[in-house]
Amino acid sequence: MPVNAELAGRSYPAAAPYLVGREKVREFARAVLATSPLNFDPEAARAAGYADVVAPPTFAVVVQEHTLAQLLADPDAGIDFARVVHGDQRFRFTRPIVAGDELTGTLTVTSVKTLGGHSMVTAETSIVDAGGAHVVTAISSLVVRGDE
């Protein structure tokens, strides 16, 4: 089944709020080989002006993932997950994610392109905090391989 060319411009409902836990931030920071005390030590983070431990930049993907799951599960999108390869990734920050944030992501498909037999779907997830203020936008391009 090909990717739905009409997908561009489609937005999905906001995903369920994601509460950022301190231990999750530490676990993720260890996994990406981070060494900054701001990722691990609340006192160090507070001394630098943050409310709690600071998540590494790519932690935003954990929140984004819940919105990408909506896109991939949409039968009308026509995206066969087994054929998906992650092409590009980008994060644009207003501020870093910190433990205690309650974050909500809303995904919009910004473009669908066909390259040879493949499709490239670009999706932007805007992530806001509990007050509705922008934290980060996560942008993924997914390459969906065509039939061989």
Binding site: A31, V32, L33, A34, T35, S36, P37, L38, N39, A44, A48, Y50, V54, A55, P56, P57, T58, V85, H86, G87, D88, Q89, R90, F91, R92, F93, R95, P96, I139
Partner: peptide
Amino acid sequence: TMGFAVQPVIDWLGGDSGKVLDYQVRF
């Protein structure tokens, strides 16, 4: 890979990942 590749830059920034405004890669 995207996650650890930015860590040397954060160390250079004094450990403050709040100074990262935008980060992009192509795989």
